[in-house]
Structures are given as structure tokens and as C-alpha cells.
Amino acid sequence: MSELHLVMQDQPAWRAMYAAGDRFYAQAGVLPRLLLWLGAMASLFATLAAWWAAPEDRAASR
């Protein structure tokens, strides 16, 4: 949902996008935003997975 949020915020670009028939926002802000989310997701997954895992499972996963 990265690109949708950026399109929502970039009101001045709406007319140009519509006129050009673009289906891709393709601005530089999309990638760092996506990378930030993916990093946060990995951290959150690691926290939950380690929390739910038994100590021997944690050792076996190394």
C-alpha cells in the first residue's frame, strides 16, 4: 500500500497522471518507504517468532 498512500498525498500530480494515463506513480519516494516497511516487518516477525519459539527451537534455528 506504499504507492497508494503516496498518490493520495500528491494532489498536484493527479491531473498529470490522469492526462498521461499512468498506472504507476514511479516516484523516488516509493522505494525507501517500501524498504523501511520491509525492515520493520522483518523485525516484527523476528520478535514474534522468537517469542513463540521454545528455547531449543531457537537454538536449532541458528
Binding site: E3, L4, H5, V7, M8, Q9, Q11, W14, M17, Y18, D22, R23, F24, Y25
Partner: peptide, 13 residues
């Protein structure tokens, strides 16, 4: 904002 962005991204969305 939400509906406009949805329509602009169209089929991809």
C-alpha cells in the same frame, strides 16, 4: 484522496 488515488492507479490497484 482515497477514491482519487484508487481511480488513478486503476487496474493495478
Amino acid at each position: 484522496q482515497f477514491y482519487t488515488a484508487n481511480l488513478l492507479l486503476g487496474p493495478r490497484w
